[in-house]
């Protein structure tokens, strides 16, 4: 009975609406579909969305690693607070983060005013998009890496040191390869999340077509112009891409867990 209810609710709320998206696309001929998803404005939005998501995820891979490392390895005042704060981007509604980041990085903002004289325009530029996407992706990297760093064998590092390896060598040759699967997973999760992000980006990006317009916003714009076919076609592309990324993360994890199990 519980199973029946579970399936019914799942079907009504998730499966039927989602399949609707694909069925709607079927109404388009392939040529129409192709035109919709490869028009210059759309392609420009892909470039921005994927590029900014990639850079944001890469920044998070570096600083997320640093934060996770500090949280696991060191004891310092404020560590617990810092640990809790990592989840702020999950807990803070995206619209709120969006206007907050915009205010900080705009021309007269706390940080923007110092960037302006340097010729750096943070808000209303692709840089702003990267900033917003870095903000929302951070917890994914930190939370994926923390358990992996906790599981690191202290002895492997001691062994490396006793064999004459210095800090950098131990890090590059022993620690990094061991946590690499987790790092890659965290990176991919942050990247996938950034691709679909909307709320935190629309305020800071400035939404100039062809320049600072992300794909999610373009879908909304098309919708507001009653271009349902165009919106649907682009949505299908984005959906397929994020499914593909998540599938590869799953494969990646399965691959590494098989490797790990053999060791145990």
């Amino acid at each position: 009975m519980t199973l029946g209810y579970t399936l019914l609710y799942l079907t009504l709320i998730v499966l039927i609406p989602l399949s609707g998206l694909f069925i709607q696309t079927m109404n388009l001929s392939f040529a129409e579909f192709w035109n919709h998803v490869t028009s210059p404005r759309v392609v420009a939005s892909y470039r921005l969305t994927f590029g900014a998501s990639f850079i944001g995820a890469a920044i998070n891979a570096v600083f997320g690693f640093l934060i996770a490392w500090c949280l696991v390895r060191y004891r310092f005042p404020g560590r617990r607070l810092m640990d809790a704060l990592v989840d702020l981007p999950f807990a803070l509604p995206t619209a709120v983060s969006g206007i907050a980041l915009t205010t900080i990085f705009s021309k007269h903002g706390w940080i923007g005013q110092y960037l302006e004289p340097l010729g750096i325009k943070a808000a209303y530029s692709p840089i702003g998009v990267v900033i917003a996407l870095t903000f929302i992706g951070l917890p994914f990297v930190v939370r994926t890496l923390q358990p992996a760093i906790e599981e690191l064998e202290k002895e492997a590092e001691e062994a490396a040191a006793s064999l004459g390896a210095n800090r950098l060598q131990t890090f590059l040759r022993v620690i990094l390869p061991t946590v690499f699967p987790a790092l890659l997973t965290g990176f991919a999760l942050a990247f996938a999340r950034a691709l679909g992000e909307y709320g935190s980006v629309v305020f800071i990006s400035g939404n100039m077509p062809g320049r600072t317009e992300i794909t999610s916003l373009l879908i909304i714009t098309k919708l507001e112009q009653y271009d349902f076919a165009g919106a649907t076609a682009i949505a299908v592309v984005m959906l397929v891409v994020s499914f593909a990324i998540l599938l590869s993360i799953n494969l990646l994890q399965w691959w590494f867990s098989v490797g790990r199990r053999r060791v145990a």
């Binding site: 064998e153 002895e155 492997a156 001691e158 062994a159 022993v174 061991t178 060791v263």
Partner: peptide, 8 residues
């Protein structure tokens, strides 16, 4: 080391 600590 007791648990080898080989680099996996």
């Amino acid at each position: 080391f007791q648990h080898y600590a080989l680099f996996k």
